[in-house]
Design a binder for these strands. Structure first.
Lengths: 105, 105
DNA sequence: CAGGCATATGAATCAGAAATCATATAGTGT
DNA sequence: ACACTATATGATTTCTGATTCATATGCCTG
């Protein structure tokens, strides 16, 4: 990835649904699409579309068993990444306005 | 930041301009707005708007000298973060389609 | 091979964030 | 106080990516 495409990578983590999917996989190991849908109360095609994005850059892997496709997190790189963010946020974003979205005042 | 706001953080790195700004600050240490604008050939208000987003979550800091506001990167957390991404990309995204945006096939 | 799941895909629409542009604020030197 | 520069802000428009919905593909079982 040329340096100027960093943002494409971060983009993958920049939506709530994909983050939720990642959390599910982090907690539960390996899940098929239906399981993810149920766990999140989200629609199948929506989840599939988003899994595709995650798959694209090896944030998740997939392996098929019969009719099902089991997705799992690429923990090697993703877990440390999330940890790093946690640390930053812990130290620097204590009262930062990440949550309140009304306006970026 | 509650866990479910991760994406707000990543969002900050998910645009080419902000990445360019970050790279400038990484390379040049401390720059005022005009310098950044010139370095990137971008418009002032555009840059200011984006710096604001970065400032919000301590990705950059600012300190004022006279009429100028000098921005610098919060290297402690941001550099390791970028490094981590580099590693992931190096290992996993060698021939992944991050750059070609036509379609996510 | 037919029927039924599980999942993927494509096209159209929708939403939200970035760019734009006009204007405001704030510091500086006279 | 005035003119000037540097930067910030707000409102509007523009774009891009996410959602939606309809449909396709693929596997499995009788």
């Amino acid at each position: 990835m040329p340096e100027n495409h960093y943002h494409r990578f971060f983009e993958l983590f920049a939506t709530p649904l994909r983050i939720e999917i990642i959390k599910q996989l982090k907690d539960n190991g390996s899940m098929n699409v239906t399981q993810i849908c149920q766990a999140l109360g989200e629609e199948q095609s929506k989840v599939s579309h988003n899994l595709k994005r995650l798959l694209m850059c090896n944030i998740v892997r997939v392996n098929q068993r019969g009719n099902f496709r089991y997705y799992e997190l690429n923990k090697d790189t993703i877990l440390p990444l999330l940890q790093l963010i946690d640390r930053h946020v812990e130290t620097w974003c204590k009262e930062c306005q990440l949550e309140r979205r009304r306006k970026w005042v």
